[in-house]
């Protein structure tokens, strides 16, 4: 187990280093940080002094090592646009994005899996057909249009839910949460649906396909022959064995949720990291962009690692001598 974890971490490191290199190259070669920091008027001597202060005259690899050292400590310098430390900006907005992504993921799983099981078991019922048609809509609508449609119906026409912002938030230490106030929860509904809908339909289709596959196997027939109740067969035997592909896709989709949070946050003016990133792209604010890039890479790599570990927990074949089994 331990060796498995260590080998996975060593596989993840090159990815992180490559992304760090890209983000450092953005820092170092795009735009001229010295000119930005000095403003309009400066002498060559001032410029040289600042260049050596910042260590820009050192060799590339030394600079890169310094960059990594700073990044590990969460130090990314000042935002060009807001003149505030990038780390502070991101820390302020992270709770909003994480709460949104978490709610969307929970929604997608809590609704998607039961819908998938149902449509897999009762393939020809009218409700299954309705779910499938609905899922086709979820897959083909772009995220921002789903958001706009939801706003039009529930905020403009019906006036039930707010269409922008987070509502009232409560501070728990440095974490600001919207879960604890009524307006915060209400503000979360539309963005979470917008963000989670695609994942929901994806999970539903996947669980449905896997269920249909598993229900045909011999051990399910055997379980039925043993006289086990339907409940035990469906949930204890069938659903459990559909979980490996579901975990893979859900893990990978968590990354997609964070990426599409950029779009959702723009539609709903949700004050999270995605909105910060898109404003930074518009203003060519390199420090924020490169910090965000590294952070996202870290999140992706961590998610992949967790997915691998979950395999280990879910699939017993991996535990007994890997490589010997059929997979």
């Amino acid at each position: 187990m331990f060796a498995f974890v260590v080998s996975r971490i060593f596989q993840a490191l090159p990815v992180l280093l490559a992304v760090a290199l890209i983000s450092f190259a953005m820092f170092a070669y795009v735009g001229d940080p010295v000119a930005i920091m000095l403003g309009q008027d400066y002498t060559q001597a001032q410029r040289d002094a600042l260049v050596s202060d910042l260590g820009l005259d050192k060799p590339f690899w030394v600079q890169f090592a310094t960059f990594i050292g700073n990044a590990v400590q969460g130090e990314f310098g000042l935002s060009y646009r807001l003149s505030r430390p990038v780390a502070d900006l991101i820390a302020e907005r992270a709770p909003a994005t994480l709460e949104l992504a978490f709610t969307a993921a929970v929604l997608a799983l809590a609704v998607g899996v039961p819908m998938g099981v149902y449509t897999g078991l009762y393939r020809n019922s009218w409700l299954s057909r309705f779910f499938l048609t609905f899922s086709l809509v979820g897959v083909s609508l772009p995220t921002f249009l789903i958001g706009i449609l939801l706003i039009l119906v529930f905020a403009v026409w019906l006036g039930w839910l707010p269409s922008f912002g987070r509502g009232d938030t409560v501070k728990l230490g440095w974490w600001s949460t919207g879960f604890l106030t009524w307006s915060g929860v209400k503000a979360l509904v539309l963005p979470a649906i917008t963000l989670g809908l695609f994942q929901l339909t994806l999970i539903m289709r996947l669980v449905r396909a896997e269920m249909m596959e598993v229900l045909r196997t011999d051990y399910i027939k055997f379980a039925r022959a043993r006289g086990l109740p339907n409940r035990a067969v469906h949930f204890g035997h069938a659903l459990k064995n559909t979980m490996v592909p579901v975990i893979t896709i859900v893990g990978l989709q968590l990354g997609a949720i964070i990426a599409f949070a950029i779009v959702t946050e723009t539609v709903f003016q949700w004050p999270g990291m995605g909105l910060l990133f898109i404003q930074s792209v518009g203003a060519a604010d390199i420090p924020v962009m490169s910090a965000y890039l590294l952070l996202i890479a870290l999140v992706f790599v961590t998610i992949n690692l967790i997915v691998d570990l979950l395999y280990y927990a879910v699939d017993p074949r991996l535990r007994i001598g890997r490589g010997k089994g059929g997979h």
């Binding site: 997609a256 990426a259 779009v263 990133f277 898109i278 962009m289 992949n304």
Partner: peptide, 14 residues
């Protein structure tokens, strides 16, 4: 590893 829209956004930003 990254969704394509994120890559496109980043290239555009750079």
């Amino acid at each position: 590893t990254f969704p394509s829209i994120l890559v496109a956004l980043l290239v555009d930003g750079v």
